[in-house]
Computed example of a mutant assay.
Amino acid sequence: MAVFLRRGLLLAFHRTLGQGSNTAYPSVLPAAVLGACRSKKTWPVSFPQEELRKRLTPKQFHVTQERGTESAFTGEFTYHKDEGTYHCVVCGAPLFSSDSKFDSGSGWPSFFDLLKEESVSLADDFSYGLHRVETTCSQCGAHLGHLFDDGPKPTGKRYCINSASLAFQAAGPDEGRASASSGAATSGKGDL
């Protein structure tokens, strides 16, 4: 119901400004209002789309490459409690520790902190007529989820992340040796 209401309000807003009608008004909304404001065009690591379609599940590809979202309470890591590190499913970059994972009740894995500040890139996202902060892997640009300011102490942050964008490496002697290939390989097509 809320989605239909938001879509209706957004449509009405566009029509008020002359968009979506037969009038010849120029677009007065910047492109940023209609979606994410990604300013970065290149990333340190990139993969051909054909390779990603073969390597990732359809859900992983949709979430990470097409800025999709998995349904709430359906992701593999929503209730995951094992100790270890969560990596980008696309490039294997380490993103979050299980030590910062918490149950936000939102239906998506939530973390209150990053492994390293530079692990994730942030961008304004105005899709669906809302303002949110999109999180992407700072190495390959894969869409992860969104950041909110309603998390627990000490950071007050909630990184609301799609399970489909994550690969998990259990704590143990090999934990610090994750590479781009092993991080992506731990999350093969059978996982989701």
Rank of each mutant, 00 (worst) to 15 (best):
F148S: 00
R132G: 05
T135R: 07
G8P: 00
A32L: 07
R6E: 13
K41W: 00
K41C: 02
F96N: 01
L52S: 04
G145E: 03
S138V: 05
A2D: 13
R67H: 12
C137I: 08
P152C: 04
T69N: 09
C91I: 02
E118P: 00
G8S: 10
P94S: 10
T85W: 01
E66W: 04
L130H: 04
V28R: 12
A36Q: 09
F73S: 02
V120T: 09
D125N: 04
R158T: 05
T135S: 14
S46K: 12
W108F: 03
S121D: 15
E50Q: 15
A32H: 09
S182I: 04
W108Q: 02
I161H: 07
E175V: 14
F4T: 08
S121C: 06
T85M: 04
S110N: 04
F111G: 06
G35W: 11
Q169K: 15
F168S: 02
E175R: 12
D150V: 08
T23G: 11
Q169F: 11
T23W: 01
S39K: 15
V63H: 07
A123F: 15
S182P: 05
L10T: 14
E118L: 00
V133I: 15
R55H: 04
Q19T: 10
D113H: 09
A93K: 15
L10Q: 14
E175Q: 14
T186Y: 05
L166D: 08
L52Q: 02
P109G: 01
R38Q: 12
S127D: 08
T42H: 13
D113N: 14
S127M: 07
H131A: 10
A24V: 02
A170V: 12
S39G: 13
F13A: 15
L192D: 14
L10G: 11
T16D: 09
N162K: 06
H143S: 02
G92P: 04
D124E: 13
P48V: 02
L114P: 04
R158C: 02
G156N: 02
S119W: 02
G151T: 04
E66N: 13
Y86C: 00
A184K: 01
R6H: 13
T16L: 15
G129F: 11
L147S: 07
H80Y: 10
F4S: 11
C140S: 11
G190F: 10
A12L: 15
A142V: 06
G75H: 13
L10R: 13
G172V: 06
F61R: 06
L34R: 12
A31R: 11
L52W: 00
L9K: 13
F148Y: 09
S182H: 03
V120G: 08
S110I: 03
T135H: 10
R38P: 03
L9A: 12
V133Q: 11
